[in-house]
Simulated assay, not measured.
Amino acid sequence: MSGQVQGQGQSVLLPSLAVAASAVFWGTTWIPLREIDGPGVPAEWSGLLIYLVPALLVLPMILIRRHRVIAGGLPLLVAAVAVGACNGLFAVSMVFGEIGIVILLFYLNPIWATVLERVVIGTPIAGFRWAGIGLGLLGLVALQGLAGRWPFPSNAAEWMGLGAGVCWAVGLVATNVARDSSMVEKTFLQFVFAALTAGLLIFLLGWTDQHPTVAGLSASLPWILAAAALWVVPAMGLSLWGASHMSPARASMLLMLEVLVGVGSAAWLAGEELGLNKIVGGALILSASLVEAWGSARADAKRVG
């Protein structure tokens, strides 16, 4: 019995560390995104630029491995579109929105992951998960209401943050279902759909009047390359690999570390105010993840026993 428990603990340790590390990367992605913005590079193009580089690099590999991509079927396609859309939406929202609020709205995703697990996989919604959903929704009300706003996103960037969380929850469930597809196909395709999403937003939101100049791109190139090589690629690879080896709800809980990293770094480096709404709303949203972690641990222990 103890050997079985130890083995299961070891099997989930590395994926858990990978997802936690990816949360640190995601929590500071706003730094290169905002550094790319400058003379000759409109801010609205930042999200597209950081994903365009890896997308172009992996396209030949996708073509070479096209038979594996086709074999992945609908689960792989849904995972790719959903996670890609998540990252594209999140990148754009980081440029224009208030970082702390956008991140907290994104990290309501355990609610959507729990509901999707029930609908797609058939996982029963236990009492502790209902409590987590309630705490998460109360956190949303506090986050917006204590700032004098209606208890839902108040601008386009915040809606993108919330939408990114929904897409991530869909991607987690689809990634969990698409176990037969390798991480190579899953990761490569995310880059392409993230770039497509960020590019589509430029047209949908009417940001086509200004285009990056050659001089602007040359000046911003170090940050564009750094964003791809030091933030996007490690974060996406670690999060997708780790998430594929655990339940969607558990992965969402571990990724909540980004809340602390993102809100803290934005307050420290970007001078964002750490108001009562973020403190109370963030505490409630984090409490929702803690309830999920506690309940999942008890459920796992009962299954092992």
Rank of each mutant, 00 (worst) to 15 (best):
A21V: 08
L140C: 10
F152P: 06
V102C: 00
A194Y: 06
G84F: 05
I224P: 02
A226H: 01
W45N: 10
V291S: 00
A297M: 10
Y107Q: 04
I111H: 02
D37Q: 09
S218A: 15
R68T: 14
A18N: 04
T197L: 02
Q210T: 04
A227N: 04
G97A: 00
A228C: 02
L135K: 07
V233A: 08
L89W: 04
W130N: 11
L52Q: 03
V69K: 06
G271Q: 05
P15R: 10
S252M: 07
P153V: 06
A23I: 02
I103T: 03
T175G: 04
V304S: 07
V184H: 15
L201D: 10
I224F: 05
F193G: 02
A235T: 03
L269N: 07
G84Y: 09
G237A: 10
I133N: 10
M61W: 15
P153C: 05
L59G: 10
R149Y: 08
V92C: 09
A23S: 12
L52H: 05
I50H: 08
W112Y: 09
S287V: 00
R65D: 15
V263A: 03
F90G: 10
L52W: 01
P212H: 01
A126Y: 01
G165F: 04
L254P: 06
R66W: 15
A80H: 13
E273D: 13
L13E: 12
P42I: 10
F203A: 15
L240C: 12
A23H: 06
A55W: 02
V166P: 00
A297D: 13
V177S: 11
I99G: 02
A249C: 03
V92E: 11
W45H: 14
V261Q: 04
A174S: 10
L143V: 12
G122S: 07
